[in-house]
């Protein structure tokens, strides 16, 4: 079974799904991400699905579960790059992915996450010690 790599970029974990996932691969990703969030203390997760030509209800449900788990671990998840044909199909399928934040591409996804964190800390003294240097680590 193939594994989907999880990359750390600054305060964000980036996952780019490039393969037609078996259900087991998707569940493994869900587990890996939870581990990595705790391990790195990241506050944002970006899942790039621009390479996926379909998202069925299983993958949709896994994405929703990942978003919920991340939220519990104080990380916001953004799913980016959904193809138009995939979005149209999901609407027809009746899957609206509630609770998942989405953006058109990785860049907009990162801006969205930055906005969220900024907003959250706007009124508080921004004295987070979290290392801000960009550390890129491939898992």
């Amino acid at each position: 079974m193939e594994r989907v790599p999880v990359l750390k970029i600054g305060d964000i974990l980036l996952v780019s799904i490039q393969i037609d996932m078996e259900d087991q691969t998707a569940l493994q990703l869900q587990e890996d991400l939870a581990d990595r969030i705790v391990e790195t203390g990241c506050h944002g997760v970006i899942i790039d699905i621009s390479a996926l030509d379909i998202v069925d209800s299983f993958v949709g449900r896994t994405l929703a579960t990942i978003a919920s788990i991340s939220r519990v671990l104080d990380a916001e998840t953004v799913v980016v790059g959904m193809r138009p044909a995939v979005a149209i199909t999901l609407v027809e399928l009746g899957l609206s992915l509630p609770g998942i934040r989405t953006a058109l591409n990785v860049e907009l996804g990162m801006a969205l996450l930055a906005r969220e964190r900024d907003f959250e800390f706007k009124d508080i003294d921004d004295d987070e010690d979290d290392a801000d240097e960009a550390v890129v680590a491939a898992s």
Binding site: D53, I88, T89
Partner: peptide, 8 residues
């Protein structure tokens, strides 16, 4: 779109 629907 129809390909995507059918494969899904």
């Amino acid at each position: 779109v129809d390909q995507t629907k059918l494969v899904t």
